[in-house]
């Protein structure tokens, strides 16, 4: 019973440690890795962005037209309508290629490669 309890305690500690560690890593990443994508003249700049895991990507609309960021495979949550100067941010915690487009101007496409 004592062994079980200490194993349980060890387990809790492990879980706690494993929870804290990525959280610390993520918050460090948030301050260390933020990448900007400008929306200007109905295009994303840069069109393709390569970032390390944990990067917070921020889109900012520099156009007088609204734009809406939508993941091509619904891999991340869509933005609301971004009016001029509005921003939208997504933190990418898994590696992969994330294609996205503007739902109201679908010829506007971009992708984020997370490594």
């Amino acid at each position: 019973m004592k062994i079980t309890a200490s194993r349980w305690l060890l387990g809790v500690m492990c879980v706690a440690a494993s929870c804290v560690q990525p959280a610390l890593a993520a918050s460090a990443a948030a301050t260390a890795h933020t990448s900007q994508i400008d929306i200007r003249n109905f295009a994303f700049a840069p069109k393709t962005l390569t970032v390390p895991v944990g990067t917070r990507v921020v889109w900012t609309n520099r156009d007088d037209e609204p734009h809406v960021i939508v993941s091509a495979g619904a891999l991340f949550t869509s933005s609301h309508a971004l009016d001029t100067s509005d921003s939208y941010a997504v933190t990418f915690s898994k590696p992969g290629t994330y294609a996205y487009f503007c739902s109201i101007h679908p010829m506007m496409v971009g992708s984020i490669i997370v490594q």
């Binding site: 939508v70 091509a72 294609a99 739902s103 109201i104 679908p106 010829m107 496409v109």
Partner: peptide, 10 residues
């Protein structure tokens, strides 16, 4: 013709 628009499409 403004719904279910696809990435890269019209």
């Amino acid at each position: 013709n403004v719904l279910n628009l696809k990435a890269g499409g019209l």
